[in-house]
C-alpha cells in the first residue's frame, strides 16, 4: 500500500509576500457581529464595480459569527479578475467601525508599511500612537445620530471617512450605492451620514 508521506522540505522560496498581484487593493474591515461591516464593504464593492473595477472579491471571516463579537471582512479590488479568494493577510487599508476594538483585536496586523487606517472614534488624531501609517478619523457614532440615525448605526458613515482618505471611489457614487442598499431603512439619512463624515474627517501621518 502506498501512503502519503510528510511533505519534504523544499528550499523555501522567499516570496514578496503571500500574494503575487500588486494590482489588487486590499481593504480589511473590522467591526462587531451585527454592526454591518459586511454591508459597508458590499456598498464599497458595488460602487467600485459601477466605477469600472472588474475584479471585486469580498471575503467575510469564515466560520461562526456572534452578535457583538469582533468580525472582519476582506475586500479586494482590481481592474481585472481576482483569483485568490482567501482572506487578505496584508491589507493596504484597514477600516475599523468601533474604536473600542483596538483594545481587543490587533487591527493593524499585516497592514503594509505606510498603509491607511480608517477609524470611527470620538478621540483626536494626537491621542493615537501608531507607527508608519496614515490615519483617518471621524466620530461617526456622533455624526450619524446628528443626521437622525439610530444610535450605533455607523456602517454608512464610515464609508465617508474611507472615501475622504483614499481616491478609490467617488463619494457621489458611494452615496448613491448607500441609498440603494438602505432602501426602506432611512436611505437619505444614511447617505447624509457618510457625506457629513466625509467633511469632518481628520487625517494625519505617523
Amino acid at each position: 500500500m502506498q501512503t502519503g508521506r510528510l511533505y519534504p522540505t523544499f528550499s523555501v522560496q522567499a516570496l514578496k509576500q503571500d500574494n503575487m498581484r500588486s494590482d489588487i487593493t486590499r481593504i480589511r474591515w473590522h467591526g462587531r457581529g451585527g454592526q454591518g461591516a459586511i454591508t459597508a464593504a458590499k456598498i464599497v464593492a458595488n460602487a467600485a464595480f459601477v466605477t469600472g473595477y472588474e475584479g471585486i472579491v469580498m471575503v467575510p471571516s469564515f466560520g461562526t459569527e456572534r452578535r457583538g463579537a469582533p468580525v472582519s471582512t476582506s475586500l479586494k479590488i482590481s481592474k481585472t479578475k481576482i483569483n485568490d479568494l482567501s482572506p487578505t493577510e496584508n491589507p493596504d487599508i484597514v477600516v475599523v467601525l468601533d474604536h473600542m476594538l483596538l483594545d481587543e483585536v490587533d487591527v493593524t496586523a499585516g497592514l503594509k508599511e505606510g498603509g491607511l487606517l480608517v477609524l470611527n472614534s470620538p478621540r483626536q488624531l494626537q491621542d493615537y500612537q501608531f507607527k508608519n501609517l496614515k490615519l483617518a478619523i471621524a466620530d461617526v457614532t456622533t455624526l450619524s445620530s446628528e443626521v437622525g440615525l439610530k444610535k450605533g448605526i455607523v456602517n454608512s458613515g464610515i464609508i465617508g471617512v474611507l472615501a475622504r482618505a483614499v481616491d478609490l471611489v467617488e463619494m457621489s457614487v458611494l452615496a448613491k450605492e448607500i441609498e440603494a442598499e438602505f432602501v426602506g431603512k432611512k436611505p437619505a439619512e444614511n447617505a447624509q451620514s457618510a457625506l457629513l463624515a466625509y467633511e469632518r474627517t481628520v487625517m494625519g501621518e505617523m
Binding site: 458590499k42 464593492a45 464595480f49 472588474e54 471585486i56 472579491v57 469580498m58 471575503v59 467575510p60 469564515f62 466560520g63 481576482i82 479568494l85 482567501s86
Partner: peptide, 10 residues
C-alpha cells in the same frame, strides 16, 4: 464552501 458560498463577487 466559504471560498465561493460566502464570498461576494460580480
Amino acid at each position: 464552501g466559504y471560498y465561493l458560498s460566502h464570498t461576494y463577487m460580480p
